[in-house]
């Protein structure tokens, strides 16, 4: 049996979008998805909610979460599956993520045509860990992320150096999420 999507597709998507918008506008702040769907494992609530909120027939998605998750996403969001991460508008990684440089970067004229990476991690805790600065942050935000590839900070520095091109990342753990737009500077805390 297909597991459920949003209980209220209109209002739950709205609430989730506001959380993602706030997260993208204030990088490193952690938000909770109020009305999570019930995705098949290994997909967790927040990553699944973000995909249901943003992906549809116009956005090819690539995911590493297996056939069950793919079928669930196709059923609820109707998005086509991309053949490779480079061709996807949304890339969901539950395991080791593809390299940021391997994803769509946008162009100097159209930097918005870049991929959004939804990265499912073990845990997200505010107040410790990375020191984040940049647009959206008054002084500094701290964010502790468990389960990231060790070279992520180096990849992120290269991603940020490519501005205005570059990938934006939404970090998800359980029903929590935080975001790293390409403008955010990241120092290991």
């Amino acid at each position: 049996m297909m597991r459920a999507g949003f209980a209220d597709p209109v209002l739950d998507a709205q609430a989730c979008f506001r959380a993602v918008l706030e997260a993208m506008a204030r990088p490193g702040r952690v938000h909770r998805v109020a009305a999570p769907p019930e995705p098949p494992a290994p997909l967790a609530a927040a990553a699944a909610a973000v995909l249901l909120t943003l992906a549809d027939a116009d956005t090819p998605a690539w995911l590493d979460a297996g056939a069950g998750a793919e079928a669930w996403l196709r059923f609820h969001a109707g998005c086509p599956l991309a053949a490779s991460p480079a061709q996807a508008g949304f890339v969901l990684a539950c395991g080791a993520p593809p390299r940021l440089a391997a994803l769509a970067q946008g162009t100097e004229e159209e930097p918005h045509r870049s991929a959004t990476l939804i990265l499912q991690v073990k845990a997200l805790e505010p107040g410790a860990g990375w020191r984040l600065t940049g647009p959206g942050i008054e002084r500094e935000h701290r964010l502790l992320v468990e389960g990231m590839p060790p070279d992520f900070p180096a990849q992120w520095a290269a991603n940020r150096a490519g501005f205005p091109c570059g990938v934006d990342v939404i970090l998800c753990a359980g029903d929590r999420l935080a975001a790293l737009p390409r403008t955010t500077a990241l120092e290991i805390g």
């Binding site: 918008l21 993208m24 506008a25 918005h112 870049s114 501005f163 205005p164 737009p181 403008t183």
Partner: peptide, 11 residues
């Protein structure tokens, strides 16, 4: 919404 998120990411 997708356009808004990209707009926020590229001020």
């Amino acid at each position: 919404r997708r356009a808004l998120l990209k707009a926020v990411a590229i001020p």
